[in-house]
Design a protein around this nucleic acid. Structure first.
Lengths: 168, 168
DNA sequence: CAAGGCTTTCATTTTTTATTGAAAACCCTG
DNA sequence: CAGGGTTTTCAATAAAAAATGAAAGCCTTG
């Protein structure tokens, strides 16, 4: 088989092309706080022309049962990986959803939004606290709190825009 | 001193207002991969109405010499903290630069941009590798690689726009 | 130019996060 | 509905990241 170091049936080594893709996704997903194993799984599925069973992911990436199962679960929760039924095989097979925006939108939904909401509550509490300060300090405190508020508003204005841009 | 649990000279406890600010920055800076101690330092400086020496940061946040020194170094490298000279005191004093966009721009410069550049190199290598594949596989591979390329371009188009939005 | 305060560095320790794999749970399927 | 393949869970372990603090380096200044 030209240019291939394994049979097409699902060997246990990684092709150079696969390695490139995997490294790339490890790097990008690390950016949003995802562990290496998740990047590996998504990277391999992304370049794979056919759905892969968990067993093959474990064998080719040399990761454990637990890491494979948990990584797939997480990726499914993002919508970044889909389950596909393979006739005549009891095992689930997985495919990458190529819509990369899912990572960004999940990140915004799971990480960014909740933090912003908590931050807004904090800002309110901070304003209340600053009320009971002596004139001088209060002025300084309010100035800074206003700054925070300003940034939160800016972020909140930006988010839907980014979403729209991402979701095509 | 009304509403204050310490003297203004620099005690060793944290006010409720300070705690709110610190927790908030710990949370946000964690998002871009910065350790807790960095969030603590920036948070305290952000609400402080006067420049603080490293010694006071250590005492009030209960962090070590090393953490304080390294955190300040990092924050200075972002431009998020500035050194201020305090007459009659040999110690450096630090103030928070209130321009929060510095965190975002540093993140883009230090984390995002380099990764995108490496990714573009990878994509080129992947295209070269895909050339030597049998018809069927090659078609599938190119389709996926194109998808990656598309996202990189989208990202590259988006970045300067975000920058402009951030830097006011 | 030496003494001493202030800051940085970095090997070690602690804490946090990710991975492993055995056991439990969950199906199909005959 | 029992047997056996597949997947999930989770306590234990390993790996990675952050914090510590002693020692080295750097200045100021007397």
């Amino acid at each position: 088989m030209a240019g291939s170091s394994q049979t097409s049936g699902g060997g246990s080594t990684l092709e150079p092309l696969e390695i490139e893709a995997i490294e790339m996704f490890i790097n990008f997903l690390k950016l949003i706080g995802l562990p290496k194993s998740v990047g590996e799984i998504y990277g391999l599925l992304f370049v794979s022309p056919r759905p892969l069973p968990m067993e093959e992911l474990m064998a080719r990436l040399q990761i454990s049962l637990g890491a494979a199962s948990q990584g797939l679960k997480l990726l499914r929760s993002f919508g970044a990986v889909k389950v596909v039924y393979s006739p005549g095989d009891r095992r689930d097979h997985y495919v990458a959803d190529l819509e990369l925006s899912r990572f960004a939108t999940s990140f915004i939904r799971d990480e960014l939004k909740p933090r912003m909401e908590r931050a807004l509550e904090r800002i309110e509490r901070m304003e209340a606290m600053a009320q009971g300060m002596p004139e001088e300090e209060r002025k300084a405190a309010f100035q800074r709190i206003e700054r925070l508020k300003h940034w939160m508003e800016r972020g909140q204005k930006m988010m839907p825009w980014i979403m729209k841009f991402l979701v095509n």
